[in-house]
Nucleic acid binder design. Structure first.
Lengths: 244, 244
DNA sequence: AGCGTAGGGATTGTTGAACAATCCTGCAAG
DNA sequence: CTTGCAGGATTGTTCAACAATCCCTACGCT
């Protein structure tokens, strides 16, 4: 935080600037358009099943059709859009089958990450757990303020940060996509509170187990946690199916 | 094999035709261009590090620049190309770190698929194992003919078919990408024989264990199999690094 | 009335040319 | 040896147009 520069401080500053620069002038138009659309989708403004018209969006986003189509491709890769040949792009409508598929992968990856921590315990500095802790507290704060979508977001980030402990770029990318698809599923649920509330406490329990290095216990808990979460989502989904 | 039509024979024929039709008139230009490039990359014609010039490829592939760029995006999502802003697209150069990352994921997924088979044993008809058997024999035949790249391909297909036993679209997609990236790594190895030969026999052993429904044994074998394969690839890679 | 079918309008797929922005190279100056 | 500045080449993006395909409606037939 000092203005003068010891070596480590200066390098940290340089890294920060480099990150900012990279963020500003990255692929630009196409990715900027993708950012806006990603937000609209994950926040529910564009519900599952909605079609994205090209001419409409070129006007709103102020990009050319070709650039917009590049943005579509980016989001398609993230699972937030699907292409139907000669018909356009749509926000995907996921079903129970997708819930089962997504949770199977989540269980495999997340549980393995926890178990993997045991093998490299000494290497893991305590700071690495800070993001998890922040997410736990953010979820609790959002719950106290009755902001349930924010609880869901904090919950997502908790699991993303959990995966990041494995230091695997590919696991991070896969998880990012899985959680984005999960967000799509949440939007068909009418009662986010019942869906997210139980896991605020369980996230804290999980965090404390990891902090205490009780990895085997944490892995077992997380496994059951994800089974319960899947079951809850499935029932909520079927209720929705009966009503709609 | 008969010309006349019992019901199952006729339906199989219809499915084949439908698949061909779907293959022909799908997204077309962009995907057709991507197909050609994918082949060139996985077969080594475009080595890691190579840059793909837009104007050159528009002439060769006979598509417009915009369409070509859509093909680039598709292949980027498969991990076969990387974008560098304002510099172009390149065939990625993977290193030891990527080997470790890729194999960690392979172990997690493939071993879990095997273990998962135990829980749904009765549902799994014997026909589901035929693709695996074909791949084993294809690898052995290719080895007898000294066609080692073909051995590598059959080996890849074996593992892809293994994952398909889990009936998870997302696992299939992830694996497809992992194996494509692995192919990129093989191209920097000078001696494909030493790399692939040991696993012909081990694939057969694995297949027989699965066929005999000894899933726990199969999972343990596969785990060690992948550890050995990773180690072999790493040493081959380091040798290459010393020579180059 | 019910059903298959042809037309019309709207949307997507693809092209080609053009311009702006950026990178790389080489060279000159300090 | 580093720094700064052209010049040329390549990528990023836009625009306008045309072709191909899909959806919907209206028509004609039985």
């Amino acid at each position: 935080m000092s203005t003068g520069g010891d070596e480590t401080g200066r390098q940290a500053w340089l890294r920060t600037v480099a990150a900012d620069v990279a963020r500003l002038d990255r692929s630009s138009s196409a990715e900027r358009a993708a950012d806006v659309l990603r937000r609209s989708i994950t926040e529910g403004a564009l519900p599952p099943g909605a079609q994205l018209s090209e001419i409409e969006l070129t006007e709103v986003l102020e990009v050319s059709r070709n650039t917009l189509r590049e943005a579509f491709r980016l989001l398609t890769h993230e699972g937030l859009l699907v292409y139907k040949l000669h018909r356009g792009v749509f926000v995907p409508e996921l079903d129970e089958h997708d819930v089962v598929d997504l949770y199977r992968l989540r269980r495999v990856l997340e549980v393995d990450v926890i178990r993997g921590l045991a093998e490299r315990d000494p290497e893991l500095p305590a700071e690495r757990l800070e993001p998890l802790h922040d997410d736990v507290e953010a979820a609790e704060a959002a719950a106290n303020a009755d902001r349930w979508p924010a609880v869901g977001t904090a919950n997502m980030r908790f699991h993303q940060h959990l995966i990041e402990l494995a230091d695997s770029d590919r696991m991070n990318a896969i998880t990012s996509r899985l959680l984005a698809e999960l967000r799509l599923l949440f939007h068909v649920i009418a009662t986010p509170r019942e869906l997210h509330e139980p896991y605020i406490e369980r996230n804290r329990g999980l965090f404390e187990l990891i902090e205490a290095r009780k990895y085997e216990q944490a892995a077992a808990d997380l496994h059951q946690y994800l089974l319960d979460s899947e079951a809850g989502l499935l029932t909520a989904f079927r209720d929705k199916g009966l009503r709609g």
